[in-house]
Every structure is written in structure tokens, then in C-alpha cells.
Design a protein around this nucleic acid. Structure first.
Lengths: 247, 247
DNA sequence: GTTTACGGTAAACATACGTTTGAATGCGTC
DNA sequence: GACGCATTCAAACGTATGTTTACCGTAAAC
């Protein structure tokens, strides 16, 4: 949106300082790895459309054409990032889910299931030397993109594990109708994605919480979701409260 | 992302059918109104970056330059849409909040407060003859944009009413620490925004719910959130469940 | 020592973008 | 009829975009 013709970089702020912390790491890597690392972070921070291949290659200190050499296209780069990151997250989710199943509770505790789902998404790919879990933000951002391609990437990466977790939640809440489980899983995704992607909005409302603190987010999120999932089922005929509109 | 150089429109699918339902309405309006109406819907459906001013003006059947004549820029158009839509929503929220305060409960019921917050956002701007609450989707999409400008637009539109609702929630839950109220309000925003914007993700997981049904969404959302807000406060020292990572 | 393959680079390509221009059009008022 | 004003229009401007091309350097393989 920002007026596209921009002649010169505004010289007020120090440019490119965003990558000061990964510059060292960068130098030891192959161009391909540098692109993956820098693009993940840039996509997460600024959105897909806002990152030009020129900006990415410049930040990664590689030649413009090598992006297409290694990944075929900008979108190929995105898919490569997902291929490298999503599977470990899905695998860790499934591992943790299997872990709860081995525990004493049968079926496993709701709290454990939710933790198994959320913790890998929020923390994996978090390299302390970076600014935070860039892939988590990227994944969240992708969920907001309307384009079919991106939805397909997400589906391929997470549908299988998500379905397993919906089944586990249903088993943990046998009295809850499947439709309610689906809705509440949808709400779960909403809180997760919003927490992962948008640390900004709540900051303009209060200083009482810091959504970029992933550990605090998880600590707060789990009891909130447990209570929500345990809420009594909604009668089919129920309607939202009515307020006299206009009087 | 879609390969930018595209020589011709693929002729397979019927183009522009998306606007068949508003074509008639369009004809009776001034170009300015047509732009507002069409852009709201296009921004909501496809995202801000994905809508070129050429596509917008073509769909609205106005000249390319009249967008800049009436709104100064593409971003000016976005701000005009918000100016026209956001205030009625914020006003209706405050009206409904005042309404609950007049009721018997002191402080008002949690359920009433949440309904007062969510219902206007989900339903206002929904014109039956259109595809749904386009502005709700647009508002949600804007929340995901990283650019400062968009955050500022959102702040201007909704900070005041949101702060009033956080205060009302705190009053309804006097024993809950302010930090917890803030976190849970953050989660509330997450479920609301996700529900308003992304009907797609859950559909690839199940057929059991339809997130584009705003009324059903509200019916399901309120009890879920009420239970979440009523969950016991999280002890400061609490840590997420720990799983032996890797074994 | 030539060949083959791979990685890297600078320059160009074609086109999409937001925006501006300057002339044309309608339209009430003096 | 002439003026002023608001609006519409076709065309152009300057630049950013994703992608491709053709050319180097290196180093193992034959």
C-alpha cells in the first residue's frame, strides 16, 4: 500500500539492523540455507506479499538469481521452508500425543492433549539467537492468506495431525457432540494462530500481558481452553442473547 | 505469489461472476459508493495486497483515475471503508454494553458482555444481498497485516470500545487478576478474528461445522468463551506440562 | 587436458503496480 | 453564451515486481 515509487531509502533509521543478530550465523552457511533462514524470518515479520525476492536475496547476501536457481520461484522457497519445518512439528505433536496415551489416564487428560498440540507449534523452530519462533508466525500468517495455494500448503502440513487431535479430543469428551468438538477446535486454532502471529493488537490496549512471551502464552492458554472445551454442550435450538436493537 | 507475468486471462472459468449478485445494486450508485462497496468485498475476500486498483476499478465499473480522485490513494480508500463501517460497530457495542448495565445483574452477566462485544462485529455490515459480512472479514484481515498503518487504523476504530469491554469484563470477574483478563481478552480476539476471517481451514478437517454461519458461530462461541473466562486464575509460578522431549 | 556438472553472477525481460496528467464532459449559475 | 466547478476519461509515468538469460569460475570425472 505504501506509495510504491520510493526513490531513496529514508536515511533516518539505521537500515537492516533487523539482521544484526543473525549476520554471524549467516556467514557460515551455504546460500541455500541463508535464503531459507532469512526468508522464514522476513515472511513471518512482514507478510508474504511485502517481501520481494530482491529484498530477501539482499538480506541473505546472495545473488538475486540464486533464489530461482535453488527453489524455482518465490513460492517454491515458501514450500521449502514449510517442508523443512512443518514435519518436525507434526511429528513432535504425534509423539507427545502418543506419550499421553501411555499415561495413567484413559482417555488422556484434556490438558495433556491440548499441550501436545500447542507446545510444538509455539516453540519448535524457536532458535534463541533469533528474534523468536519465526516459523510459528509464518505459519499463522499463512493461515490468513486467502490464496488457495497457501491453504493447500497448510493442509498438506497439518491436516493429518490435526485430525488425530480432533479424534483425541472427542475421545476425551465423549459426551460432547462432534459438531461442538469441531467448533471448539476451530476456536482453539483461532487462539493459537492469533497468539502466534499478532503480538501487536493487545499491546495497544494494555500492558498487562505480553503475547510475544510464548511460555506465558501457553501457561495462560491451556486452562482457558480446557475450561472452554469442558463447557456444557450447546443445545441445537439455542440462540444468542437478544438485545432490543435500536431501543 | 502467483507468477506475475500473466499474458492473458485463463478463459476456462467465467470471469467476474463473483459480482453478479451486486451488479444490479451497483448500477444505482455513484462511482464513489461503488468503489466503497466493491473494494470492501474484494479486500475482504482476497486480501489487501492481492487487490490492485485496476482490479477494483474494473469490478466497480469506474475509471481507474476516479479511485485516486475520490480517495487520494488505495490506502485512502481503505480508510474510507473503515470510517464508514467501524464507528457504527463500536457505537452498537457501547449501546449494548450500556443496555446490559441497565439489567438486573450487577455487574452484568459475562454472557451479556461477550455478546455485546461480538454480535455487532459479526453481524453489522452484513447485507443479505451480498455474500456475507464483508467488513467483518476485512477487519479480521487487517488485524493480520503487519504494517503499522493498518494497526493504526484498527486502533483508531476499536481501542476505545475494546478498553471499555476489558474494564467491564474485569468488573464481572473481580477475582481474576488484570493480567489474566488481558490474556483472555487476547484469546477472545483470536477466536473472533479467526472466525470472522477464515472459514477455510476447518473445512479441510471436518464437515461438522460451518464457520461461515455467523449465527451458529456466535451460539457456539459464547458458552466456550464464558467457560474460558470463568476458569480459575493461573498461578504465577505455573508452568506448562512438561513432556520428556525426545524420549 | 578436456569434459561435465554445478554454483554463482550481472544484466536484461516482460509486465504489474500505484499514481499523475491534461484534456473532455456535464451542469448549474451569472 | 460564458464562466466555474466537479467529475470522468484515456493515456502516460516511473518504478517495482518475479523470472530468465547468457556468461564465469571451480572442481571432480573421464
Amino acid at each position: 500500500m505504501s506509495k510504491q515509487p520510493q526513490l531513496v531509502e529514508p536515511e533516518g533509521d539505521a537500515p537492516e539492523d533487523r539482521f544484526a543478530d543473525i549476520r554471524q550465523v549467516l556467514s557460515g552457511l551455504t546460500p541455500r540455507e541463508r535464503l531459507l533462514m532469512v526468508a522464514e524470518r522476513m515472511f513471518a515479520d512482514e507478510g508474504l506479499a511485502a517481501c520481494s525476492v530482491r529484498a530477501i536475496t539482499a538480506a541473505a547476501q546472495v545473488n538475486l538469481a540464486s533464489l530461482h536457481y535453488h527453489f524455482g520461484s518465490k513460492e517454491g522457497l515458501l514450500e521449502a521452508i514449510f517442508a523443512a519445518r512443518a514435519k518436525p512439528i507434526a511429528d513432535e505433536r504425534m509423539r507427545m500425543l502418543a506419550e499421553c496415551r501411555k499415561g495413567p489416564g484413559r482417555p488422556p487428560l484434556l490438558e495433556q492433549i491440548l499441550t501436545a498440540f500447542l507446545l510444538p507449534a509455539l516453540t519448535l523452530g524457536m532458535e534463541p539467537r533469533f528474534g523468536g519462533p519465526a516459523f510459528a508466525r509464518l505459519r499463522a500468517r499463512l493461515g490468513t492468506e486467502p490464496e488457495k495455494v497457501h491453504q493447500r500448503i497448510l493442509s498438506k502440513a497439518f491436516d493429518e495431525s490435526s485430525k488425530a487431535f480432533m479424534a483425541a479430543l472427542q475421545a476425551a469428551l465423549p459426551d460432547l457432540p462432534p459438531a461442538d468438538v469441531a467448533w471448539r477446535f476451530h476456536f482453539l486454532l483461532g487462539t493459537m494462530v492469533y497468539t502466534m502471529a499478532y503480538s501487536g493488537r493487545i499491546r495497544s490496549l494494555t500492558d498487562a500481558c505480553d503475547p510475544s512471551d510464548q511460555r506465558a502464552a501457553l501457561t495462560q492458554l491451556i486452562p482457558f481452553l480446557v475450561a472452554g472445551f469442558r463447557a456444557p454442550s450447546v443445545p441445537e435450538s439455542a440462540q444468542p442473547l437478544d438485545f432490543g436493537a435500536g431501543g
